[in-house]
Structure formats: structure tokens, C-alpha cells
Computed example of a mutant assay.
Amino acid sequence: MKEHFTVPEAAEYMNTTVRFVRRLIAERRIAFHHLGRHVRLKRIDVDQFINSGRVEPVTRWKAA
């Protein structure tokens, strides 16, 4: 598997739009690398961003 994504590849991997990924980059909400004029995202950074949004389920219990 690829270690680095282009912006369109990252968007496809995250099942979202290219615009959303570009906004994450512009707002510095996801780590990225500049290779000259090109932007690349490491798979591990994309996975870390995805996992940071994880919400655990709430367990409820009966009140006495």
C-alpha cells in the first residue's frame, strides 16, 4: 500500500471531498508535507486524524 497520499487520494481514502481535505490542510488540522509545490499526506497521519474523531458509545444504566 502507498505510504503517501495526494489530496485527491486522501479524499477518496477518507470517503470525503477534495475540498474538505484542502480545508483541513489550510486550517492546519491535519499533518501534511510539502514536496516543492506538491502536498502529500502520510497514511499514518490520515489514520490518526480519522481516529481522533472517534466517539465512544455511551452506556446507560437504570436509576434505582
Rank of each mutant, 00 (worst) to 15 (best):
M1W: 03
K2E: 06
E3L: 15
E3S: 12
H4P: 00
F5L: 05
T6F: 05
V7D: 04
E9N: 07
E9C: 08
E9L: 08
A10K: 03
A11C: 06
A11R: 01
A11W: 07
E12L: 10
Y13Q: 02
Y13G: 07
M14I: 07
M14C: 14
T16L: 05
T17S: 15
V18M: 01
R19H: 10
V21T: 03
R22M: 08
R22Y: 12
R23T: 11
L24C: 12
L24M: 10
L24D: 06
L24N: 08
L24G: 09
I25D: 05
A26L: 12
E27R: 08
E27L: 13
R28I: 03
R29I: 07
R29D: 11
I30L: 14
I30Y: 02
I30C: 02
I30E: 00
I30F: 01
A31W: 02
A31T: 02
A31M: 04
A31D: 06
F32W: 05
H34I: 08
H34D: 00
H34M: 14
L35K: 03
R37Y: 10
H38I: 07
V39W: 02
R40V: 15
L41V: 08
L41S: 03
K42C: 04
I44P: 00
I44R: 02
D45N: 06
D45G: 05
D45Y: 01
V46H: 01
V46L: 09
Q48T: 11
Q48R: 11
I50E: 06
I50R: 13
I50F: 01
I50A: 11
N51Y: 07
S52I: 00
G53A: 08
R54T: 09
R54C: 05
R54P: 00
V55I: 15
E56S: 12
P57Y: 09
P57H: 14
V58D: 01
V58S: 02
T59L: 13
T59P: 00
R60I: 11
K62H: 12
K62I: 12
A63W: 09
A63K: 06
A63D: 14
A64W: 10
A64L: 11
A64C: 10
